[in-house]
């Protein structure tokens, strides 16, 4: 078979970025969902769009997939404008949207075999079943799968055509912890083959686990971009020194916790009860970035 001989080219740094977005705007019925979003995804990287529900993650990804129109902004995906790109371009991207989109009366194997006909050189069904851990469900009808199993089928369908760029829209929602870890392995496998991955998630651990860079989206804009460990560097510098004084908790937020501690210890002859020094974790940083009331203000 000649179809198995083909493999996507490995990306090089000389390539143009996989995704370039400038000033993307989109509103529904007068309500702005995206309001000047800028984004760049390098070839071969895994980029996570992180944000609360309704922040515009799905709209962004749908514009990039070329299935939703935009009101304004420049968008290039694999050197083409998704709004006008044709079938050869579609063959180079893979989409895992929030539904699996296969007829409920088909078995998992039938669905994969059917959709293989839309691709030149698809991944073999057996390989896909193994990769997403659905081998034992191959003969089960799609309508009888659990939510997590449907997500896995969606992932299998999304990578069936050996795409160079994969969009994963909240791929692990509804998966149990074992399935999530299996999915992470799958994404690492894709990346090892040079596939560029753009995923949306509202799981911080997932972003930290998978992504080279994370973009936090809030109110229709990208408010911060960076490697997960460096996200919110400004915010992370602020530590909270906290202790009990006369039975009540006192907290001081400071960029110089050492100085605060020295003063505190100098003025307190005995042990300081309940003393803690904390720095914000990824979750705290995230909550501050998206301006959720639950985050420290």
């Amino acid at each position: 078979m000649t179809t198995t001989e083909w493999a996507p080219p490995a990306p090089t740094t000389a390539d143009a970025p996989a995704v370039v977005v400038r000033g993307l705007a989109k509103s529904y019925g007068g309500r702005a969902v995206l309001d000047g979003l800028d984004l760049e995804v390098v070839r071969g990287e895994c980029f996570a769009l992180l944000g609360p529900n309704g922040a515009g993650k799905t709209t962004t990804i749908e514009v990039l997939e070329g299935v939703r129109s935009r009101d304004a902004g420049e968008v290039r995906v694999l050197d083409a404008d998704p709004a006008t790109a044709g079938r050869p371009w579609r063959a180079r991207i893979g989409v895992v949207s929030q539904g699996e989109g296969a007829a409920q009366a088909l078995t998992v194997r039938e669905a994969l075999d059917h959709f293989a006909a839309y691709h030149a050189g698809p991944r073999p069904t057996a390989e896909l079943l193994a990769a997403v851990g659905l081998e034992e469900k191959a003969g089960t009808r799609v309508g009888r799968l659990s939510g997590g199993q449907r997500r896995r089928l969606a992932v299998a369908l999304g990578v069936q055509g050996r795409p160079e760029l994969v969009f994963l829209d909240e791929p692990t929602t509804g998966m149990d912890p074992v399935a999530r870890r299996q999915f992470w392995e799958l994404v690492r496998g894709l990346r090892a083959e040079g596939t560029t991955v753009l995923l949306t998630t509202h799981y911080l651990d997932e972003a930290a686990e998978l992504a080279d860079r994370v973009g936090v989206i809030a109110d229709g804009r990208l408010v911060e971009v960076g490697p997960p460990a460096e996200l919110g560097a400004q915010l992370r510098r602020v530590a909270t020194v906290s202790w009990l004084e006369g039975g009540a908790r006192r907290s001081v937020r400071t960029e110089a916790p050492g100085a605060v501690l020295r003063d505190l210890l100098a003025t307190t002859p005995h042990e300081v009860p309940g003393l803690t020094v904390t720095r914000p974790g990824l979750e705290d940083v995230y909550l501050q970035l998206v301006g959720t009331p639950g985050g420290e203000q």
């Binding site: 079938r87 579609r90 989409v95 539904g99 989109g101 007829a103």
Partner: peptide
């Protein structure tokens, strides 16, 4: 099929 999202899958596959 459209309401069930099956046509979205066909669209992203570039089905003529």
């Amino acid at each position: 099929e459209r309401e069930a999202g099956q046509l979205e899958r066909l669209q992203v596959l570039g089905t003529p």
